[in-house]
Design a protein around this nucleic acid. Structure first.
Lengths: 214, 214
DNA sequence: AGGCTATTTATACACTTGCGCAACAAGGCC
DNA sequence: GGCCTTGTTGCGCAAGTGTATAAATAGCCT
C-alpha cells in the first residue's frame, strides 16, 4: 500500500549549499559545542540529510575547518570595517574603532562562544594556533597604525617599541572588554564598555581629555 | 591454561581517588577537548578502569562540573595569592599583582585551553555562566580594592563610579594580556607583558612614572 | 518530451560512547 | 588467619558516531 515515499528535495547551487552547511555548523557548535555538533545535527539544521555533507566536504574535520575560517574571516572583516572613516580625525577614528569593537554586532554571545570553543583547541591544533596568530597580529597592526596617526596629529614622535607597547596594551584592553561584554553584557550600562574603553585608551596614549568630558 | 587473570589494583582513599580523577579529567580536556575527554580516556590517565568513575560520580556531567569547579578554584586562588604582600606600598602591591597574573604559573597554555573550552559552553550552560560571573566579580573587586588603596596613598578621592571604571578597565587589560601570553607567549620578550601591563595600569590611574623609568 | 547527470536521500557498517551490573579481591577487623 | 565490606574490575548493551555506497530524482540540455 504505502508506496515507499522518499523525501522531497531541491537542488541548490554549490556555493549556496556550502554556505548553508557552514552556517549550520557554526550554529550547532555555538549551541551544543564541538561534541554536540554531529553531522546529523548539522544536516538537520541545514535542512538536508547527513550523507550530503560528504558530497561537499571530504570529512567532518574539513567542514569544521571551513567553518572556523568563515568565522575568523567575518570577525576580522567587521573589526577592520570600523576603521574606514574617511575625513575624520585620527582621534575620532580611534574612538569609533573602540566603540565598534565593544558594541553589537561584535559584542555577541554566539560569536564569543564560537571563538572560545575553537581557540580552546589551539594548543592541540597548530592550524588553529596559526590562524589565531595571523588574526591577532593583523588586528594589532591596525591598532598600531591608528595609534601612530593619533600621536603624529599630536606632534609626538614615538619610537617603534613605544608604538608596539601601546598597540599590545590597547589590543589587550579591547579583547578583555569584549569578553566581558559578550559573557555578561547585562551587568554593564549601554555604552558603558565603549566609554570605559575610550577613556582607558586615551589614558594609555597620554591624551588630554577632550573638552566636554569631565 | 590461561587462568583468567584479573588486573591488580590498589584501593585508594576516597579523596585521593576523586582528586586523581578530576586531574585526569582536566588533563584529558586540555589535550583532546571536551569531545575527546571520554570516560575511558580519563580512566586510562587516572590508572583505573572506566567503570570506577561511576563509583565516585553520578555521571560524566558531574565529573566535568567538579573538574571545572576545581579549575576555577585554583585559578582564583593563585590570582589572589599575589595580593598578600604585607608591608609593601599599595603601588608595589598592585605592580606585583599585575606581574604575577602575567607570569607563570598563571600564564599557562594548558590552563588557558581549559578556560576557553569550558567558557565556550557558558551560553548553553547557566551553571558555567554563573560560575564565571562570580569569579569575575570577585577578581574585579580585588582589583578595585587595591586601586582604592593606591589612589588613597596618592591623596586622591575617587568616587565609586570612577573606581568601578578603573577596575573594569584594569581587569580587562590583565585578561587580554593573559590571553596573548598563553596563546603566543613566544612572540613576547620575557617580562614584556608584565612591563606593558604595569605601564598601562599606571597610565589608567594617572600615576606619574616612578623614578628610574623613562 | 525524454534522457543524462550530478545532487540528494536512504541504508548499512564498524566503531565508540556513557552507563548498568555481576563478579572479584584488597585490606581492615575480629 | 578467616571473614566482610566495598573499592574495583570486566563485560555487555543500546544509542549514537563518522564514513561508505547504492538507489532515486530534480532539473538542465537538446
Amino acid at each position: 500500500m504505502n508506496a515507499p515515499s522518499r523525501r522531497k528535495f531541491r537542488r541548490e547551487g554549490e556555493d549556496r549549499r556550502r554556505q548553508d552547511l557552514i552556517e549550520a555548523t557554526l550554529d550547532s557548535v555555538a549551541e551544543y559545542g564541538l561534541q554536540g555538533a554531529t553531522l546529523r545535527t548539522i544536516a538537520l539544521r541545514a535542512g538536508v540529510t547527513a550523507g550530503l555533507i560528504r558530497h561537499y566536504f571530504p570529512g567532518k574535520e574539513e567542514l569544521l575547518q571551513a567553518a572556523y575560517a568563515a568565522l575568523v574571516g567575518r570577525m576580522t572583516e567587521q573589526a577592520k570595517a570600523a576603521l574606514v572613516m574617511e575625513g575624520a580625525s585620527p582621534r575620532r577614528r580611534l574612538a569609533a574603532f573602540v566603540t565598534a569593537n565593544l558594541s553589537t554586532p561584535i559584542i555577541d554571545a554566539r560569536v564569543f562562544s564560537l571563538w572560545a570553543t575553537f581557540i580552546g583547541r589551539a594548543n592541540a591544533d597548530p592550524t588553529l594556533a596559526h590562524a589565531h596568530r595571523e588574526g591577532y597580529l593583523g588586528f594589532r597592526n591596525e591598532v598600531e597604525a591608528v595609534v601612530a596617526e593619533v600621536l603624529a596629529a599630536e606632534q609626538r614622535k614615538p619610537d617603534a617599541s613605544q608604538l608596539r607597547r601601546h598597540a599590545i596594551a590597547i589590543n589587550a584592553l579591547i579583547d578583555g572588554l569584549w569578553i566581558e561584554g559578550c559573557l555578561a553584557g547585562e551587568i554593564f550600562a549601554p555604552g558603558e564598555l565603549a566609554a570605559i574603553g575610550i577613556r582607558a585608551v586615551e589614558a594609555e596614549l597620554g591624551l588630554a581629555p577632550e573638552r566636554g568630558e569631565q
